[in-house]
């Protein structure tokens, strides 16, 4: 199964209780991956509220994930 490195920020970091982790997953897209993680970490934000970056670049939730990809889920923040 593909092995991915994940990074979390803000609310997601808080809810996951960590800022990064490595997972082995059958999820082929960021959308499927987030659905899987949302159950495991009880994420309260929906994917519609987030952005995802793969290998250092913002990307869509429907792209294909490859073994070794670095995936960053970013919730919006507005504090000032």
């Amino acid at each position: 199964m593909p092995r991915l490195t994940l990074h979390y920020y803000a609310l997601l970091r808080e809810q996951a209780g960590r800022s990064s982790e490595t997972v082995e997953t059958g999820a082929r897209t960021p959308a499927a991956l987030y659905a899987e993680l949302a159950v495991r970490h009880r994420f309260r934000l929906s994917a519609a509220q987030l952005q995802v970056a793969v290998n250092g670049s913002f990307s869509g939730f429907d792209r294909t994930l490859e073994d070794g990809d670095e995936v960053v889920f970013i919730p919006p923040v507005a504090g000032g």
Partner: peptide, 24 residues
């Protein structure tokens, strides 16, 4: 980058979430 679901009330602000002075 930010979809239209990005609205106030959907994530925390300083009042609710707290913030340490050096961060801003």
């Amino acid at each position: 980058h930010w979809p239209e679901a990005t609205r106030d009330g959907l994530v925390g602000n300083c009042e609710q979430a707290g913030v340490l002075g050096p961060v801003p």
